[in-house]
Amino acid sequence: MATFVDIQPTQQLDPIKGVKKMPLEEFFTSGHRTCQGCESALVMKLMAKAAGPRTVVLGSTGCMYVANTTYYSTSWVVPWMHTQLGSSGSAAMGAASGLKALMRKGKIKDEPINVIAFCGDGGGADMGLSAISAALTHPDYNLLILMYDNESYANTDIQLSGSTPYGAHTTFSPPGKMKRIMHHRWKKNMAGMLAAGHPTCKYIATVCMSYPLQAMNSVRKALSIGGPTFIHSLDPCPKGWDYDPMQSHEMGELAVTTGVWPLYEVEEGVIRLYGKTKEIAEGRYKRFPVRDYLLRQGRFAHFTDDDIDYFQSKVDQMWDKWLVPGVIPFLKEVETDHPPK
């Protein structure tokens, strides 16, 4: 295959050695309309900071479009363009292929330019899944698709998405008199699914901005390695999850330390767990009970102990039964599933 694929050089973005070595300049800055304590806005800021000035960013419909850019005003320093809800994959392909053609044909200066398309969980895990999947099968375009996952359509009044956790209260899944749990689907395993399904994709990672250094270095690796890449970021959302904005950072840490959100990267097909997740997998760190995470959020306030136990059992299964713990949900034998009545 390689002989038919002509790959352009990428920018070589070296890992940032520590928070003290962090570049000072911002490329996504203030003046947006996002909520107090919006972790997704933090993702935008640190993603742009990691990528640097020679970058084009394409943003799918969602909070990071509506709240960030209020016409005739913006928060972006680097070029930014809106793309349709399900089009992050197509947008990245379009910009990357356009730049590539123009450079090859000598119509513009030949230089590596980062192309990043972002989408929320609605735009990525739901509507945009096929376009993202297609983009990841094109080894000849250098692009990064970053999915900021705040676990609901938070921009349209918080409706459930394929990425909303089991049982969560949303405007489309309100706990009622007859049904306590309206949303009984389990969260899609986006990064795992994409890594397993796109063998030629060189880099797929999960991140959380409560661990900014690793997250930013993930972005840098994704932009340097060549070809299409994907990063899935879990973003605590004070608005949709219903918690005090001051606790955004802590909420992200809890998602990881309870084992609900595993941190890993799949580089050239090689899986590597990192941070607390690695310690959990190696038994060097005892997972916090999910109760500590769930009951800090209003969206789970209606949970009974049975619901919490069930949630815990599913997370335990991730770590104790999955073929690749936390990543690939294949089991060695059939498990029975008993959600609470």
Partner: peptide
């Protein structure tokens, strides 16, 4: 500075 979502 790093964790401020508003780059304030």
């Amino acid at each position: 500075w790093l964790q401020c979502p508003d780059s304030c």
